[in-house]
Design a protein around this nucleic acid. Sequence first.
DNA 1: GTCTATAGCCGGATAGAC
DNA 2: GTCTATCCGGCTATAGAC
Lengths: 190, 190
Amino acid sequence: MGSKGENNRQRIIDAADQLFYTRGYNQTSFRDISDSTGIPRGNFYYYFKTKDDILSAVIDSRTQLYNDMLAKCEQTATDPCGRLLAFVDTLGSFEDQLIAVGCPIGTLSSELAKDEPHLQAKSREIFELLRSWLAKNFEIAGNAQPMATAMDMLARMQGVSVVACAFKDKTYLNRGLGEVRNWVKKLTLN
Amino acid sequence: MGSKGENNRQRIIDAADQLFYTRGYNQTSFRDISDSTGIPRGNFYYYFKTKDDILSAVIDSRTQLYNDMLAKCEQTATDPCGRLLAFVDTLGSFEDQLIAVGCPIGTLSSELAKDEPHLQAKSREIFELLRSWLAKNFEIAGNAQPMATAMDMLARMQGVSVVACAFKDKTYLNRGLGEVRNWVKKLTLN
DNA sequence: GTCTATAGCCGGATAGAC
DNA sequence: GTCTATCCGGCTATAGAC
């Protein structure tokens, strides 16, 4: 705790997180992480057993990050509609990265589906965290099928991300997110 | 034409197509394609200059494939609503693969966005082919913004694919596609 | 056109000094 | 805890016999 070792461990996780997002997990090498942190390659094995273990730690770190993000969305508004809209706004605030390399959660899941089923299952926990939070807010708003509606909202946002990235179309990204906002408002009207 | 060489070339493309889809482009090696076809690794360079060239040929092959698929959708019905629904049904007919590894077009685009921008741009041509066809049908149905609506439809289908694959949820996949069908029907009602 | 052999590099992982 | 050196294997790509 607070030792230099824990500090280095977190620096590795943070650098790996960014590289896994922008280049993909399989395309990121220990050399890349070493170059980014200044920590020698061989040293990684003091903190992690394998590359998969680094990814596992990155997923844990992201889970914590998104948990904090949801807490911020709750502070933004007191009504479920305002909180759900804050969630959409958060995604929109990363528009440049979304256009360049897609959604961090969706693209990680899609990549892991092809060759790391165990870690794809772990990455699913992030989606489940978001889904639960969305469902909770839809339920408060009086929605009859909060879980199904939360799933639909995740799908809409993922769809907008994939297509905006595929077409490199920022105009579409903002229009698509605007339609999600309208859909949320319509569903949470009293 | 019709020579043994052309036959082998197509066999390489077909095997690579399947492997790039199920394992991802970066995770597929020449050895994998060699094992799948029985054609020795070194021989690939008689037909293609680089691995990227194989991917380029695979994208061309998929473009042709989806072009044929759209033609079949047109034969299924004479009205735009029926044709658009046939398009959704085609996606649904691959449910097992969608759950396992996602949409062939969406996941390829997402992977290439991270480290092959030139080929991501080429893969975009497949999305543009689909979008044009969808827009044409929405236009016939009297839609005021056919291109934007086509983009929305692509996004909805991509979103359902990503989320169904992430959650490994076939029930959601079919419900999500059902909602896309309802949305199409509502938009193409006269 | 087809095949074998291999170059040259880079990947993850390990050993062991300090 | 930190770092260097290195192993071993897989990768794309090439050379050249047949």
